[in-house]
Design a binder for these strands. Structure first.
Length: 273
DNA sequence: ATTGCCTGCGTGG
DNA sequence: CCACGCAGGCAAT
């Protein structure tokens, strides 16, 4: 287990603790004690990890803040509306999406080469899959279970040729997590409905939040927020397709395929930038 | 805060 | 086909 991952585990534990004790407004000392670090060390680790102090971070991550953001629905709505009218101006990601052809869909990746590798990120270990036509997979491992994650990828692209390649994956991680160069290509495979939902997610700029309902409305299916949640849960390319930016209408955090603590963490970091 | 009834899509019989 | 499961929403408690 790498140092980076251990740090992430600590942060995750801290966030869980906060989540369960929001009503008590835990102090820095209490949080630090819970994860067995000195307040000093914890503060330092946190700052290094998130780029802001724990206190500032909490302001952003806290439920009340999320509620406020949702309440100011003009911001949210204008964001989404503007996203529709001129997507390229609002995007923090200039992602060009390529969807697989019907033939490829049927054959599930025949003649497709996927360079895969596991990579460490500030939010945990993830499995990267890259094809000639773009990134096709960015999923986090739960409990460091790489085998399960890998078999999921193989199932998703049953006939593809898999090549282990750490260098390609490393470049992707640097591009997505550490650089301002966000001009990435992705390769998506899904039903029409899923593609519509995933592309709607790409229109939410970093630092902004949307709701399942708002997404449902933008794709012209205003009563299908549940179906939207379903489709979002199947997003194969985390972070780049920002499924973490979608909350419930009432401001609750909602679910996340890779754990709500991780979702909070990603939102918090984006908010604080 | 909790409950019960609604939604639409994907999956497995 | 049909039946069920979901990262949701809403109205009535």
């Amino acid at each position: 287990m790498t140092e980076r991952h251990e740090d992430y585990v600590r942060i995750e534990k801290a966030i869980k603790f906060i989540e369960q004790n929001t009503h008590r407004q835990p102090s820095l000392d209490q949080i630090a004690e819970h994860i067995n670090l000195s307040p000093f060390h914890f503060q330092k680790l946190f700052k290094r990890w998130a780029g802001v102090s724990p206190k500032r971070f909490l302001q952003y991550v806290t439920l009340e803040h999320a509620k406020q953001i949702i309440k100011e629905s003009t911001i949210l709505d204008t964001t989404l509306d503007m996203g529709l009218s001129s997507p390229s101006r609002l995007h923090d990601l200039f992602v060009s999406v390529e969807a697989v052809t019907p033939g490829e869909y049927k054959t599930e990746g025949l003649n497709l080469q996927i360079n895969y590798s596991f990579q460490e990120t500030p939010f945990g270990t993830c499995l990267i899959g890259v094809t000639e036509r773009g990134i096709c997979n960015l999923t986090f491992t739960q409990e460091e279970d790489c085998e399960t994650e890998m078999s999921r990828l193989r199932t998703r692209w049953e006939n593809a040729e898999f090549i282990s390649d750490k260098e390609i994956g490393k470049k992707v991680v640097e591009q997505v997590f550490n650089s301002s160069d966000r001009d990435v290509k992705i390769l998506l495979k899904g039903t029409n409905f899923q593609l519509k939902v995933w592309q709607a997610l790409l229109r939410i700029p970093s630092g902004n939040l949307a709701t399942y309902k708002a997404i449902a409305e933008t794709i012209g299916a205003p009563t299908s927020s549940r179906a939207v949640g379903n489709a979002i849960g199947l997003n194969p390319i985390g972070i780049i397709i920002p499924c973490h930016r979608v909350l419930r209408t009432n401001g609750e955090i909602g679910g996340y395929m890779w754990g709500t603590a991780r979702k909070r963490a990603i939102i918090g970091k984006e908010m604080s930038q």
